[in-house]
Nucleic acid binder design. Structure first.
Lengths: 134, 134
DNA sequence: ACAAAATAAGACTAAATTAGTCCGATATAA
DNA sequence: TTATATCGGACTAATTTAGTCTTATTTTGT
């Protein structure tokens, strides 16, 4: 499927939420889950991934929660998606460690290269600030 | 995953192959399968789908096979992908019959609309002629 | 008429991915 | 020291994708 996963959708919703916080505020996984109707323990996992990728930062313990890791203008859509789904390759043979029996004659990779480039350059050009504005 | 399925890859390979035929020639599923290293019975299914969507036309019986249904310049990448994967929607809530509990407050759809539009307009602008040229 | 070579169609199985849950550990504020 | 969080990993269930198999139909050539 040429589609973002539910996890990614949830991640984007959560990031929108976190981006809307006032400076100094944090949001808990529970708050976000209730606010956006996302299963709490699934969202918890997603927020952990975003934290590992440093899109957000976490404060542990009571009164803990999440805040943006950097300015919304500096978080690209590409980074958000790739934090959850891994590197974006529209076809499998674009992946780094992929070796294919068709290597010597298959031209699909070349044929779809423009699409791959178009897409990734677009995803790098849109930021959380743009996404959150809507 | 933000990726084309194997079926779609196979479809594109097959279309490239068929597009390269001389006028009046047809290619059998078996030929294409051997040429592109695609499982024969899977490819057979894929070619049937492409036929139903009229991207190619089939000649049944002995000496039968497949040929392009119209000029390569008139077959868009969008049509090829959608013949196999169905309508392209980067998020689920863009789908026609999707109803969502978050409808009244979720802005994700709006936020990602530019991406959806960018992508589909690109896919409609590229044709099999472009794809086959590589 | 009949055999051979194709496509057509649908049921079916297996593998992989996605979605979601649960639990025990750790961190921190009050 | 208790309550409230995040962290991390194992686990299960559901869905999608990939691929197979079988039977029927179409068409050509003999």
């Amino acid at each position: 499927m040429f589609k973002l996963s539910k996890k990614t959708e949830y991640a984007l919703m959560a990031l929108q939420h976190i981006a809307s916080l006032d400076k100094g505020q944090v949001a808990t996984a529970k708050e976000i889950a209730e606010n956006k109707l996302i299963p709490h323990s699934l969202l918890a996992k997603i927020l952990q991934q975003l934290t590992r990728h440093q899109l957000i930062l976490s404060l542990q313990g009571a009164h803990g929660g999440y805040a943006l890791g950097r300015k919304a203008e500096e978080i690209t859509l590409a980074q958000m998606i790739e934090a959850i789904e891994g590197p974006i390759h529209i076809i499998e043979c674009n992946e780094s460690r992929y070796s294919c029996q068709r290597d010597d004659f298959c031209t699909l990779k070349n044929s779809l290269n423009p699409l791959q480039k178009q897409l990734t350059s677009y995803l790098h050009s849109v930021t959380l600030a743009d996404v959150a504005a809507s």
